[in-house]
Design a protein around this nucleic acid. Structure first.
Length: 838
RNA sequence: GCCGGAGUGGCGGAAUUGGCAUACGCGAUCGACUCAAAAUCGAUUGCCCUUGCGGGCUUGUGGGUUCGAGUCCCACCUCCGGCACCA
């Protein structure tokens, strides 16, 4: 045998199997009722978040699809009918910005990128059912995005309203609340500005409670994702209380989580944006001063306003409002620490028991009246801050008839009292805002609406869908949608009255496209509906969803909302799209996030070409627990490549030097038994670790141990004339191939074919032989006072007394006990003996 | 500030129910093969003391429970992620 034949060359092996999978359509699965459908198999929907096609796939993609593919392969071989589709989230800003720079149509760049993604997925050997491929920028897809929009409109879940919205001046579009991070645009980091615009919204707030409650329907989601969504929804219970401005006969509703502190309300604050500010100041002496303050506050960037550390500012309004519980007239202020977006934009201020109100009262010299006290005997309260504790232990004071009662009780009773007089009621408030979906951009799904001067807002009838995106000359946004320039497209007929009308020129947020794609995969060529309900009900929900944690709020909450809305419309039978969620950690290089500007990017393609896809995929799964992320190391990749080479060379040698007809040994010799035991140990370990979650690093480590054991024993076994020796080696080698297959499918298939013949993926996942796992002897750990003093082989069937006798016979144990008195002896059967000596 | 998560060799990490701490990989050292190198195969590799036998120490820090703690409890430190004038 020459050198060439001894070297593991991944490229030809990988090509060979990719071609087989492609020509044999190995990973395609039929829908119920279609040819080849196997009703007796349980289904498993394994799904990775669809990529946004921009440029070429990066390491994050490689990780996501390596992890997902390992799960898909494991499930298939465990007897599931696995649906594992792929698609592209193809609308979006980067392609449009590219178009603005180059003049190239966004579709061209997007399609080019999709081609590159498709090609790489094929080269990575990902087991995808390509018949189900979709892309959100194709009219065959977005037709149904529009259809769903219209259904939500019918269900009263889509509405158009003028609202103060967050505008990104750089991207020249409005943003959803979720897309504003610390006052900046989530995409480009530009400070956002407030603007008043008429925009389309989805009423996700209607689902706030169900989005919270249905966390119970999920099996396994990372806690941090659930927490993030929970915080984002921000449900808080409390009361709505009416404060009346008697002079103007104007009622103000405020929300409070602490109705028990109502007697401590010593002033009242309006947000600068509050619509009633002008009426309140009209005709008062300092009206102009208030107007100046409001104007300044409105101009300040959101980011600056949103800081708790900032000094409190505000201005007095020459009016009072009445505290409903005691009839007290309290002063009114306008201050920017009160936000229009939350609650009612007005608050009752209780400086004694709210830090912000305390800070404001201190700055403006206002009364701080304590109405809640800790029980007697508690520590002195600090004078320089608010006392916010609220439990059964605190007691109301200075609260008329409520004084002396526990503050939680008072909270309930005060609300009852208010309710009885029509001055308030219990209420729930959310941080969650409705989803603003309008975008003043070109490269998105057109909103299927026509504005008619006589009929108003008219939905485009279903049979006129899709509303296709027109071709335009100039992609540059000018504060309005670039679609405004497509005059011929904009000017249309009203579907209602037939008169001249104009099309809606805003497009949809791309998160709309990706909120239902997992349903289209199930029935991708349906021309009557986005998907057939029966088919969708068969495959849904997604059994395992895999993706980056950066989508914890945006995508994952929107998709949950969509599925609930579709369920309410009778289009689907599930309430939750993703039963199990796995969020992968980020891969860094030299400890830093990869970025082109830092020049520390890792190109998956480079590694795939040089070392093979199997190496790249296996390495990424071996780096550490995939949810944690890790640092890319070239030495580490080499190490994995070395391991795969070892397996391949082992297979080569075993194939050359053993017979396939070899019978298993009837009377196993020590080496044979050792090797078989290791193989079954590896099967057991790999299976358990797979089932435990995503600890692929330990699965791979077990296979490495098995291969190491083969190397250790193969010298003797290959020289051994008896048939059992060869059979054991063949079994161990093909088992290693079988177990590594989910990570290195090409090599796994190749080695299996070399040793066993046939198609590895058609083989069920191996089962460990229990009889080989239970040992006749075990290593007994002998401790004296909890310290290991000896290790010895003991028969597994020995009783406690016999184990103790063995332990006490050990020389080193005798020395340690020497002279002392044995106080206690602990025996853990099958593990250890601990002798306690004084 | 609030809510999560994590701290284990030179490095990435393992340890399933409270029972051998450091599996597997990287790196390093030595050896075999080679004229030589690469590749490959094999051995060693937590720290300290000791020529050796052996002994002591070690899972961020301090305490506790236990025959026995990386794992459980209490307090603290550090790092990472998320949220934050949310009334």
């Amino acid at each position: 045998m020459n050198e060439e034949e001894q070297r593991y060359e991944p490229r030809p092996i990988e090509r060979k199997w990719q071609q087989i999978w492609e020509s044999e359509r190995t990973w395609e699965v039929p829908n119920p009722g279609e040819e080849g459908y196997q009703p007796d198999k349980p289904k498993a929907y394994v799904l990775e978040m669809l990529p946004y096609p921009s440029g070429e796939p990066h390491v994050g993609h490689l990780k996501c699809y390596s992890v997902g593919d390992a799960i898909a392969h494991f499930r298939r071989r465990r007897g599931y009918e696995v649906i594992h589709p792929m698609g592209y989230d193809a609308f979006g800003l980067p392609a449009e910005n590219h178009a603005i720079r180059t003049g190239e149509h966004p579709r061209v760049a997007t399609d080019r990128s999709i081609e590159s993604f498709r090609e790489q997925f094929r080269e990575w050997g990902v087991s995808i059912d390509w018949t189900r491929e979709v892309s959100s920028h194709n009219p065959e897809y977005y037709r149904w995005t529009q259809w769903i929009f219209l259904r939500l409109l019918e269900q009263g879940l889509a509405y158009r309203e003028e609202a103060a919205v967050q505008w990104c001046p750089k991207d020249a579009t409005v943003l959803a609340n979720e897309q504003v991070v610390e006052g900046r645009c989530e995409r480009c980091g530009t400070l956002v500005e407030p603007r008043r615009l008429k925009q389309w919204f989805f009423k996700i707030t209607d689902y706030a409670d169900r989005l919270l409650a249905d966390f119970d329907l999920l099996e396994s989601w990372p806690d941090n994702v659930i927490t993030m969504q929970r915080n984002w929804i921000g449900r808080s219970e409390g009361a709505e209380v009416i404060f009346r401005c008697e002079e103007l006969e104007l009622d103000f509703e405020v929300f409070t989580t602490r109705p028990d502190t109502l007697f401590g309300a010593t002033f009242f604050v309006l947000a600068p944006e509050h619509p009633a500010v002008e009426r309140m100041i009209e005709g008062t002496e300092n009206a102009e001063q208030v107007r100046t303050y409001v104007a300044e506050a409105m101009r300040a960037p959101t980011e600056q306003r949103g800081s708790a550390e900032r000094e409190k500012t505000g201005v007095r309004v020459e009016r009072t409002v009445t505290n409903p519980v005691n009839g007290e007239r309290i002063p009114v202020f306008v201050a920017d620490y009160v936000l229009m977006e939350y609650g009612t934009g007005a608050v009752m201020a209780v400086p004694a028991h709210d830090q912000r109100d305390f800070d404001f009262a201190t700055a403006f010299g206002l009364e701080i009246r304590r109405v809640v006290e800790p029980p007697e005997g508690a520590d002195e309260l600090p004078e320089d801050q608010a006392f916010v504790s609220h439990s059964d232990r605190e007691v109301a004071i200075n609260s008329e008839q409520f004084s002396g009662k526990p503050s939680t009780e008072v909270a309930v009773e005060v609300v009852d009292w208010l309710e009885g007089r029509g001055l308030g009621s219990s209420a729930v408030n959310y941080r969650l805002r409705d989803w603003l979906l309008s975008r003043q951009r070109y490269w998105g799904c057109p909103i299927p609406i026509v504005h008619c001067p006589s009929c108003g807002v008219v939905p485009v009838p279903d049979d006129q869908l899709p509303v296709e995106l027109p071709e335009i000359e100039d992609y540059q946004p000018k504060g309005q949608s670039p679609l405004e320039t497509a005059t011929e497209w904009v000017e249309t007929e009203c579907p209602g009255c037939g008169g001249p009308a104009r099309r809606e020129t805003d497009t949809m947020d791309t998160f709309v496209d990706s909120s239902w794609y997992f349903l289209r995969y199930l029935d991708p060529r349906n021309e009557e509906l986005p998907f057939d309900r029966e088919i969708a009900d068969h495959w849904m929900a997604v059994d395992q969803y895999i993706g980056g944690v950066e989508h914890a709020i945006l995508h994952l909450m929107y998709a949950r909302f969509f599925v609930k809305a579709l369920a309410d419309g009778g289009h689907i039978g599930v309430q939750e799209p993703f039963i199990n969620l796995f969020t992968q950690g980020m891969i860094t290089r030299d400890g830093a996030k990869m970025s082109k500007s830092k020049g520390n990017t890792v190109s998956p393609q480079e590694y795939v070409e040089r070392l093979g896809a199997d190496t790249a995929r296996t390495y990424i799964c071996f780096m550490g627990p995939p949810e944690r992320g890790g640092d890319w190391s070239d030495e580490g990749v080499e190490g994995v490549h070395r391991f795969l080479s070892r397996l391949w060379r082992l297979a080569r040698e075993v194939q050359d030097r053993t017979d396939s007809g070899a019978a298993p040994a009837s009377q196993p010799e020590a080496e044979v038994r050792e090797l078989l035991t290791k193989a079954h140990w590896a099967i057991d370990k790999a299976t358990r670790d797979f089932e435990r979650g995503f600890q692929f690093n330990t699965v791979i480590a077990a296979v490495m141990e098995l291969v190491n054991e083969c190397y250790r024993l193969k010298g003797e076994l290959l020289d051994d004339e008896r048939e059992g020796a060869a059979a054991a080696l063949r079994f161990a080698t093909s088992t290693a191939a079988s177990l590594i297959f989910p990570f290195a499918p090409h090599l796994g298939a190749e080695v299996w074919e070399m040793i066993e013949g046939g198609r590895l993926w058609e083989q069920p996942w191996p089962e460990p032989d229990e009889s080989l796992l239970s040992h006749e002897t075990f290593t007994l750990i002998v401790q004296v006072n909890g310290k290991v003093r000896a290790k010895l082989e003991a028969a597994s069937d020995l009783g406690d007394e016999e184990l103790l006798a063995l332990a006490r016979a050990e020389q080193r144990v005798i020395e340690q006990i020497d002279g002392g008195q044995v106080v206690k002896e602990i025996v853990v059967p099958g593990r250890l003996v601990n002798i306690v000596v004084r």
